[in-house]
């Protein structure tokens, strides 16, 4: 066969899908409180007592309606992390997070869920560790919109050092 006969044809395409997402009554309360008052609210399951964030209407484990609202402190513990060397795109803005950066899972004190976010620490694995204490850094009140980007990042609490170092 000639080169012409084995030329494979392709067709580029771009699909843009607009959508409207409704948070529902439970997440609405948490996002409104985060935006307007800089406070983080979770819900507690009346049966297993787990405190769940984001809040949801039903405890998946117990199949009962979650009731009591609990305000969480803005401090927590890093349970897992990575140092990202890929320029991950924020799909909601189309803008990349510039690598390298620290990305991790934080459990706010008293909460059973974890929260994935940027960790404002040097991208050096000697300076970040599982168990590190961190606190929430919020955008200034007027700049908050009511989603997870109202948290700029977590920052390590001062005066702590990596165990064993």
């Amino acid at each position: 066969m000639t080169a012409r006969e084995t030329e494979w044809i392709s067709i580029p395409m771009t699909v843009d899908v607009p959508y409207r997402f409704a948070a529902g009554r439970y997440l609405t309360k948490t996002l409104t409180q985060l935006r307007d008052n800089g406070r983080i609210f979770a819900v507690e399951c009346p049966r297993c007592r787990r405190i769940q964030l984001p809040p949801r209407i039903v405890c998946a484990q117990c199949h009962v309606r979650n009731g009591r609202w609990v305000e969480l402190p803005l401090e927590g513990t890093l349970v897992a992390f990575t140092i990202m060397f890929l320029p991950l795109t924020d799909p909601t803005t189309g803008k990349p997070h510039e690598p390298p950066f620290v990305y991790g899972s934080v459990r706010l004190d008293g909460c059973d869920s974890v929260l994935d976010h940027l960790i404002h620490a040097e991208p050096d694995r000697g300076k970040v560790w599982v168990g590190m204490r961190c606190r929430v850094v919020l955008r200034p009140p007027g700049e908050r919109v009511g989603d997870l980007s109202d948290i700029v990042h977590f920052e390590p609490l001062p005066d702590q050092s990596r165990p064993g170092s």
Partner: peptide
């Protein structure tokens, strides 16, 4: 990921498995 709780911070498969590894 939830559009209001996590999509802006989605770490891609690599990020999740990296956290599994560090943990």
């Amino acid at each position: 990921a939830n559009p209001l709780w996590g999509r802006s911070m989605a770490g891609a498969a690599v990020g999740y498995f990296a956290m599994m590894g560090s943990s």
